[in-house]
Design a protein around this nucleic acid. Structure first.
Lengths: 351, 351
DNA sequence: CTGAAAGCGCTTACAG
DNA sequence: CTGAAAGCGCTTACAG
């Protein structure tokens, strides 16, 4: 374990104080060009890198942001969604010379939650919170604490929170519009996401609203939990009870994948007998046969923009807490594939 | 931005020095039970959480580990593989009350690489490096520096590195064995991974070795790059030239997915006309039609075990650098699905 | 046994 | 203008 090089080592090599060396490296004007060059050279030669602990303690800034995945959604960690968000965060964090910390599981040792400690200990200057349940008290507390936090998603009950999301209601309405107007589907079923998350509620509401708009004769809803298994279970019920649906709107692609498998094995043809659509487009929907028509959620961009907003908060350039710019809404695309009845790779229907 | 609570605040509330408060919280025996309780209560009431910067500076330990993805493989970041590794790392890190830092892109500002800074600045106590190219000088330098590093994969040219991996050669041999002995395939093609990564070489060598063992009349190899597009390109060539292969061994599932699509559109039936196998099983292989027979790489377990080993190094309980326990090899499973000719969900063939 | 200094590495505000 | 102290928050080694 090699001893690390400190500013003192650099200063000693040049024959100045560590204070002078510090100023030299930061380009302070009171240091002569000559010593500045000497210090920089010495730092290079010794492979000096500032201690993050020393700097953080002095500057009261960790130069790090955390991605927080609340306990309430730990079970979905491991999903490509988080990778997309993380990629976006990394892009923004790199631009700010900041580190990205991933904080997931419960901190059982203290009975609290890990991410509260990340914030309170100032390991991170701020946090991105995603996939929080509506009634997650810890997230509420975190937002209320005034620490820099940006939420990904819609949180109508957290009025003062800064957030980045999409319009799940409108996007789902577009899917239903497509099934009805392009493919003539009229007997639709919605398999919901988890209803303790706002996306679950919003996608269901979008479905119901569009069904109502089009005056559909029958609208059915089965509650799912976003897992492939729950999509499969819903379709097993459909296959068993034969209610005659001609279109299924799954609240995400994972459930659509599970559902497609069950329908195929039961001999139900998609899209000939039943149109299927999903939501997310994080990777699976492109790969099935037929491909799944879905809404592309710009997860990477959400991560990037959320992180940019987070740095604004950290730097004190926060948005007016009572202004109307606390929420950033990103546009989505409907990606048309074979499962609804379009040609595979039919393209994109920008809503 | 609320002012954070320091040890001094806690100490003041109880009427002791911060040194005493520190000892009280760590359960030092020289502090009486009475003051210890009082300090703990005060800490709870004030919501005290130790400053990570203060603690890190004093203890010379960040209580954090980094996941490093070298530049040479930045293009594959965003893949489910990393999420699995990250999940495994989180499990181990949580058990050690440590944070997980994700370090990806180049640190262009200094001309160096971001992850070198993460280590040199002591932001992390150690690092997991995955997907490094064989000739990645930065990784070589990192290993040579003596800082705690664990590599995921096989690095025969880095003899002294601690690493966790699987036997890619043997696993690929098993796939070929299966195609030959169970499905009677004899005219095989291998689409390689990137050949500047050891996995690419090993999987190719496993293919060639098994082909030789079975005395196959013809063995063909097309170089791919692990992308869906390169798998598709390879199959376009096959469809065009009609060389009469009856089995394709793709070096990963992504390429198999791209290949399957091209074959299907060309009217080639899988598995009737051609058997297809992949490698990885990170999520895609389960979802296609037919499902892809593949080798399940235990990425989460690799991440977890690598991180456990890393903590051993950090704690100075490193393995003997000249011992033969520097490399941990994990077992894999061959997952049988429809693409080779087995029934979908035929089960697992433990090699 | 206990009080309080020293020092981890850094940067800036202060004294000269 | 420049030298060097002070202090961020923490913990342990030291002095009494």
């Amino acid at each position: 374990m090699p001893k690390s090089v400190t500013l003192k080592d650099v200063a000693a090599k040049v024959g100045v104080t560590s204070a002078a060396a510090s100023m030299a490296l930061s380009g302070h004007e009171r240091i002569s060009e000559k010593t500045r060059a000497a210090v920089k050279r010495a730092a290079d030669e010794l492979g000096y890198v500032p201690s993050s602990a020393g700097r953080a303690l002095r500057s009261q800034r960790a130069d790090a942001v955390a991605l927080i995945v609340p306990n309430s959604s730990t079970h979905v960690f491991g999903h490509l969604y988080f990778m997309h968000v993380l990629t976006g965060m990394s892009t923004a964090a790199n631009a700010h010379d900041a580190q990205v910390i991933v904080s997931t599981n419960a901190d059982t040792s203290t009975g609290g939650v890990a991410y509260e400690r990340v914030m309170r200990s100032r390991t991170a200057d701020g946090a991105i919170v995603t996939s929080a349940a509506i009634d997650d008290d810890h997230v509420q507390a975190l937002v209320a604490s005034g620490l820099p936090v940006v939420l990904i998603g819609n949180y109508p009950h957290l009025a003062r929170a800064v957030s980045v999301g999409i319009d799940d209601v409108a996007a789902t309405e577009h899917l239903v519009d497509h099934l009805v107007t392009v493919h003539g589907r009229r007997r639709l079923l919605h398999v919901t996401g988890t209803l303790d998350h706002q996306t679950g509620l919003d996608r269901r509401d979008g479905f119901l609203r569009a069904a109502n708009t089009h005056g559909l004769p029958e609208v059915a809803v089965i509650e799912g939990d976003l897992s492939e298994a729950s999509g499969a279970a819903a379709m097993e019920q459909v296959v068993r009870e034969q209610p005659g649906y001609d279109g299924i709107v799954f609240a995400n692609d994972d459930m659509a994948v599970g559902g497609l498998r069950v329908l195929r094995r039961a001999g139900v043809r998609v899209p000939e007998d039943i149109s299927v659509v999903g939501f997310d487009d994080f990777g699976l929907a492109r790969v099935t046969t037929p491909g799944i028509t879905t809404v592309r959620v710009p997860a990477e961009e959400m991560g990037r923009i959320a992180t940019e907003r987070l740095f604004s908060l950290v730097d004190g350039r926060g948005s007016d807490p009572d202004g109307d710019d606390r929420h950033t809404e990103l546009p989505v695309e409907v990606v048309l594939r074979g499962s609804c009845g379009c040609d595979d790779d039919a393209g994109i229907a920008a809503p």
